[in-house]
């Protein structure tokens, strides 16, 4: 799926800004890719090409770096990112059960995004809260001592939020003539 003209423009602009900030040295490749992902949420093909061109690197080299590190995403993430810790402490305290609970509830596997782009589910290796295992990072919040019941709670909160937003939108639409 090729991005639309608008999207292409957006990507070009984002990459341009990052390159301006960080320069075009080889050693800046990783910070550049991080910057692009911070702005766009992922590394679109076009962005990697543009970076390769600016840094005068083979495109495959940029792709190689982008696929080596866990943090880089090649596809747009969901609106809410759920990262289940699968570090030692969390695993032993039932992290795998939590991951399975999310997989079951969202009907996706780890590493995937729901078709409605609401949630993406990832595993992360230790966020440093082992003392409060098992841990889940939901968007930017760290949830401690998560149980399968809490998994339902987390998702329910988002569902309610979304329903409220939708209602709000409808109301606003209704107001407009």
């Amino acid at each position: 799926m090729d991005p639309s003209a608008d999207e292409q423009e957006l990507i070009r602009a984002a990459v341009g800004t990052v390159l301006q900030d960080l320069g075009i040295e080889r050693a800046s490749l990783i910070p550049i890719l991080q910057g692009v992902q911070n702005r766009l949420g992922y590394l679109p093909s076009l962005a990697m090409r543009q970076v390769a061109e600016a840094l005068q690197l083979p495109e495959v080299e940029v792709f190689g770096v982008g696929t080596f590190y866990n943090q880089f995403r090649l596809n747009p993430p969901g609106k809410h990112q759920i990262k289940v810790c699968m570090g030692t402490a969390c695993h032993m305290m039932g992290g795998h059960i939590i991951l399975e609970s999310f997989e079951r509830r969202l009907s996706i596997l780890e590493g995937e995004t729901t078709p409605d782009r609401e949630y993406s589910l990832e595993r992360v290796a230790c966020v440093g809260c082992c003392a409060l295992a098992p841990v889940v990072v939901v968007d930017d919040n760290v949830e401690a001592r998560v149980s399968p019941i809490r998994v339902d709670g987390i998702l329910l909160t988002f569902d309610i939020e979304r329903q409220q937003e939708e209602r709000q939108e409808k109301r606003e639409e209704g107001r407009e003539p």
């Binding site: 690197l57 083979p58 495109e59 495959v60 080299e61 792709f63 190689g64 696929t67 080596f68």
Partner: peptide, 14 residues
């Protein structure tokens, strides 16, 4: 990459 300096292939993933 080094001999013919094309840069078509490389290592990906890990």
């Amino acid at each position: 990459q080094e001999q013919v300096k094309v840069g078509a292939i490389g290592f990906i993933r890990r």
